[in-house]
Structures are given as structure tokens and as C-alpha cells.
Design a protein around this nucleic acid. Structure first.
Length: 255
DNA sequence: ATGGCTACGATCCGTAGA
């Protein structure tokens, strides 16, 4: 079983790339972020034609998440329980015997800003919810654009980014707190190339200079981590015309 | 050098992303 996460930065613009990529990669589950589409405008027919069921929660212009799966999603949830939020950042569902949570974490803008405070509040609520989810579902996968580079090796220029949003100590503590629940960073279960990133700024030829961050993640409970045979970043879509600034991360689970 | 792209919805520029 192949699980993937991809911040597509507009599903409308990236739909053809998503369809091509899914045909080539054959994932069983795809978590999408920044769909930027109201639910009424979700491309249901195209996604179905590509062989996926879909659960989604979107809004105009900003945010929006979707969970694509070969099997019908059950028990769909589209918010962190008890955390009131206008912003559509969460969709979770049960797929077969696994619980899958798709997340688009707040960006945080700048350390000390209102958006940064919201990001940390959001992470607090997320941790409490995932603790609950883990207790209920030992086979739990959490995928998404978490907007945190957990370690310096996840940053192209750790000095320049030191203490900045995505890298600040409170954000890294929030990421660690998820791992402390019993989740594992699937990417780090394996030897990886140095300077592996999942996002590159559109400006300054950042992709060509590999000036990126690893902020898109797949976290697995122990039961799923034990089955994980590979996890990699697929840079191919970032090389296409009109790419998303993020690229997919894929994990493979053995039966 | 604090910009530099891109997407969006509103115009012909502002907001947001990270």
C-alpha cells in the first residue's frame, strides 16, 4: 500500500499534473493540501475517473484539503474536535483497517505574529486530538504539509533560518510532541540523500539551487512504521512547467 | 539587496504563501 502527501497549491491548476502523477505512481492514498476550492467545485468526476474515492474540505482562495483513496473512506472528520476554526485544514478517514489524517498546518507567517500564535494553538489542539486518535486507532497515519522543518538537516541554510518561522524552537517542540505520542517520521526510518527537501520557493531559482525545506511529512504509528518499507520525496513534479512549490512525499507499507 | 514567484479575487493591486 502506497501513501502520499502533496501540497498542490491549487487543485484547479494542478489537476492535470495530479492525474498524470497518480497514473505513474499508483498510490493507494493521496493527501492533498491547498486545494483552494469550495466543496461544490471539487473535481469529483475527474478524481473518480482516475480511480479514487474522495473526502474533502475546502474553501475559496485559501487552504483546503482532500483525501483520495482506492477504497471508500469511512468515518470522515473535517476538523479538530473542539477546536473552532474557519480555516479548512483537516480531513481524516478510516480506510480499510487504517486511520488516515490529512493536514495542512498553518504557515505561521513570522515568529511573534498573530498567525504564529494561531499555529502553536492549532498544534496544541492537534496533539490532544491525535493522542485520542492513536488510542482508538493503533494503525494511524498522519500526512500533510506540517509547515515545520523538524531539524537543521531539513533546512538548506540552517544559519539563515535559525529561529525563523518553520524552524523556531516552539514549532520544533510541537513537532517533537507528535513523535512523543508514538508517531514516527517515516522519511527518517531510512537512509536518505543529504539535503532532501519537499518545498522550494518559487523565487530566486530556489529549486535549481536546492534551497528548500522539508516541511511535508508522513508520520506513522508503531504498527504502521513496522510495515513501512520505503519513504521518499518525488522531485519529478517540481520539474514540470507550472509546478506546485511543494512536491509529493510517498511511503510504502508492506502487507 | 528584505526583493526576487505564483494563485487568487479583486482589479490593473493586495493578500498570502514559506
Amino acid at each position: 500500500m502506497k501513501l502520499a502527501t502533496w501540497n498542490v497549491n491549487s487543485l484547479k491548476v494542478r489537476l492535470p499534473q495530479l492525474i498524470d502523477w497518480a497514473a505513474a505512481t499508483q498510490p493507494d492514498v493521496v493527501c492533498l493540501q491547498e486545494t483552494k476550492l469550495e466543496d461544490g467545485k471539487f473535481p469529483q468526476a475527474e478524481i473518480e475517473a482516475a480511480g479514487f474515492h474522495a473526502a474533502f474540505s475546502g474553501q475559496k482562495t485559501y487552504n483546503g484539503v482532500a483525501l483520495l483513496a482506492r477504497t471508500a473512506p469511512r468515518d470522515v472528520v473535517t476538523s479538530i474536535p473542539g477546536f473552532t476554526d474557519e480555516q479548512k485544514r483537516v480531513v481524516a478517514a478510516t480506510l480499510g483497517d487504517a486511520r488516515v489524517v490529512c493536514l495542512y498546518a498553518p504557515n505561521g507567517q513570522a515568529v511573534g505574529s498573530d498567525k504564529y500564535a494561531y499555529k502553536l494553538r492549532w498544534y496544541d489542539a492537534l496533539r490532544a486530538w491525535l493522542a485520542d486518535e492513536l488510542a482508538r486507532h493503533p494503525r494511524l497515519a498522519v500526512l500533510g504539509d506540517l509547515n515545520i522543518a523538524p531539524e537543521d538537516r531539513d533546512v538548506h541554510d540552517p544559519k539563515a533560518w535559525e529561529g525563523q518561522v518553520h524552524c523556531s524552537a516552539p514549532e520544533r517542540a510541537a513537532f517533537s510532541a507528535l513523535l512523543a505520542l508514538g508517531l514516527q517520521d517515516a522519511f527518517r526510518l531510512f537512509e536518505q540523500p543529504e539535503k532532501s527537501f519537499s518545498w522550494w520557493d518559487y523565487r530566486m531559482m530556489a529549486f535549481r539551487r536546492n534551497a528548500g525545506l522539508r516541511i511535508d511529512h508522513i508520520l506513522l504509528s508503531s504498527a504502521l512504521a513496522a510495515q513501512c518499507g520505503a519513504c521518499s520525496i518525488d522531485k519529478a513534479p517540481r520539474k514540470l512547467e507550472r509546478p506546485s512549490d511543494h512536491t509529493p512525499v510517498v511511503a510504502e507499507l508492506r502487507p
